[in-house]
Write a protein that binds this DNA or RNA. Sequence first.
DNA 1: GCGCCGATATATCGGAGCGATATATCGGCT
DNA 2: AGCCGATATATCGCTCCGATATATCGGCGC
Lengths: 206, 206
Amino acid sequence: MLELAILGLLKEQDLHGYELKKRLTETLGSFSSVSFGSLYPALNRLERAGGVAATEAGDEPAVAVPVPMTGSLDGELAAYRATRRPTRRAGRSRKVYRITPRGDALFAELLAADNAAGDDERLFHLRLAFARFLPPDERVGLLERRRAQLVERLARSRANRKSARDRDAYAQSLAERDTELTERDISWLDRLLAAERTPKGKAKSR
Amino acid sequence: MLELAILGLLKEQDLHGYELKKRLTETLGSFSSVSFGSLYPALNRLERAGGVAATEAGDEPAVAVPVPMTGSLDGELAAYRATRRPTRRAGRSRKVYRITPRGDALFAELLAADNAAGDDERLFHLRLAFARFLPPDERVGLLERRRAQLVERLARSRANRKSARDRDAYAQSLAERDTELTERDISWLDRLLAAERTPKGKAKSR
DNA sequence: GCGCCGATATATCGGAGCGATATATCGGCT
DNA sequence: AGCCGATATATCGCTCCGATATATCGGCGC
């Protein structure tokens, strides 16, 4: 799972572990903030598998002007510090990771794999975040598979909600929330599917 | 985490592993269906710690009429089979688990622990499911702590949503969903808090 | 009656992810 | 000079999961 995320980010830009972590927490959503205890082992796995190559960066930045990607806080802060003084980066030396052709192939494989079983929300969100690398028909497939899973889940959720009626108020509230969330997620997917089928050519790809 | 769930269910009724798993998937919500690979090890941990005691059931049921808990499918099916024939249960012999006083204490400890750090959704849901075992003021505390976490998360989520504007449509949609879900969860908690503060004495406790 | 399928049930294994912690190195503040 | 805090990489122990193995019984076809 992490492998997919790492490779996806490295496809855009070479990055070192620490920076990778920040972007990862953005990509995966506001929750689920990827621990270093999973990131570094995952990077090592990828390196052993030949999916990424690491270059020990001295102290000059690997890229003259690292692509800001967003006009966000980090960028502005860095710019501010840069005007104050041409400071050399603080802290320990970095290992900058770069994706290889093997990694590209691995990424495509992980992205397309149709995990029929298992309704892993995080994995779906991750795939969706990289949906732009998927051909349009596979995008629809991804969304429809997810929709089917949610419909199944909704049935279980409604059954559970019914049977929760003779439990206490907390169980009921929990079950109601569950049902509503699933319903909303389904209509969210329906909106995405509708957008997918009326192309309009406005999609901003990279 | 599983320990808390197991002990909470065993507080109501003695259960064997397989049945425990079914109830667990209900309690934890429609997703996250607790694997045997975590359940049985967790039961062994609890047994070693003296929180539960296992009795190897022969083939007579440990309880003459196992409490149905819900008038649900399981119950009706069992009743149906019972009318057809006084069948002896099929399958391998069971190990029925019973909670001990040590387990009771452990449960209280796990339920009350104020995990300031870490915004683990599942753990919160689990605690809420057993909120009836908490004194009213601690219930409010639990809800308010969760609310604070969600407010923090909402801030991150909104920031991320803003910075997602110059990424593709999928990232934007993902970020919007994130924000909306968090907002809805906060108002859900507000409703629970309001209900908590206007007691009305209607709460159905056990 | 016999064999086999499917349900019931317990158990283990390898791997992934997490939280805590250790280690290293530098800038800046006092 | 000394220390703090930010940056960065890395490891340890643990929990949980999915897959798989194992055991045992009822019921079905033939």
